[in-house]
Simulated scan of single mutants.
Amino acid sequence: MKVIKLVEIIAIDELQFQNYIDSWHNQKERISPSSCETGTISFQKWKETQLILAQEDNHPAGMVRAETLFLIEDNGYIIGAINLRYAMTEDLLKFGGHMSFGIRPEERKKGYAFIMIKLALNRLRVNGITKALVTITRDNKPAQRTIRKIGGKLENAYESKGNVIDRYWISL
């Protein structure tokens, strides 16, 4: 039986992380959550930046406390990632919400997103969030199904840059 768990960024190995990122690039897909994009910085520098963002009071102006967690197997293989935000800005209320998430392309349609989000919702709850906002582009049907399965209720939708964005709330 495969054992999976949600872990903090400090538990992530550079080789496994690069393998995870490569799986997105090999499919020519944009990495989700975007917090996993390293750009041109080293893995270590990226990790340090993410750890700063996770601190209560030490994040750049205009940013909120956020942390990226990873759904992994016991051997360190990364299945997916989720970025949690513990406060809202006007921009996050429109697009982004309390979480953004992604499952590596070859691991989709196996129920991992549901498991990862359920585990992450506990983390939001412990940090005082009672309702979590998730925004999803209308064409992302798998994410919409997952959020509805978890209990997400569609509040409204709006158009942005040619995309329809659906706003779901999940009661914790």
Rank of each mutant, 00 (worst) to 15 (best):
S171A: 12
I82A: 01
R108F: 00
T49D: 11
S35D: 06
Q16S: 08
L172Q: 05
E56W: 02
R30G: 13
A120M: 08
E8F: 12
I72P: 04
F95E: 14
I115N: 07
E14I: 06
I31D: 06
Q55C: 05
M116T: 01
K131C: 11
T89N: 00
S23N: 10
V64T: 06
N75W: 00
G97V: 00
A61E: 13
D91V: 14
L124P: 08
L69A: 05
Q50K: 11
I21G: 00
I21A: 03
L71K: 02
V7R: 03
C36E: 07
D74M: 01
A132M: 06
E155P: 12
S100V: 08
G162A: 02
F101R: 07
K28M: 11
D13A: 03
L121M: 06
K47M: 08
E48A: 08
W24M: 06
L124N: 04
N19W: 03
H25E: 14
E159C: 13
I82E: 02
S100P: 10
N156I: 14
I170W: 03
N140M: 10
Q27M: 14
A66P: 11
R123V: 14
I115V: 15
T38K: 15
K110G: 02
N163Y: 10
C36H: 05
I147F: 03
Q18N: 13
K141A: 14
G152D: 07
V164S: 10
K118S: 14
D139I: 12
L71P: 04
M88D: 09
I103D: 04
L51S: 07
V64Y: 08
G128F: 01
L93C: 12
E29G: 09
R145V: 15
P142K: 01
Q18D: 10
T137F: 12
Q44N: 14
G111M: 03
E155W: 12
S42P: 11
A66V: 09
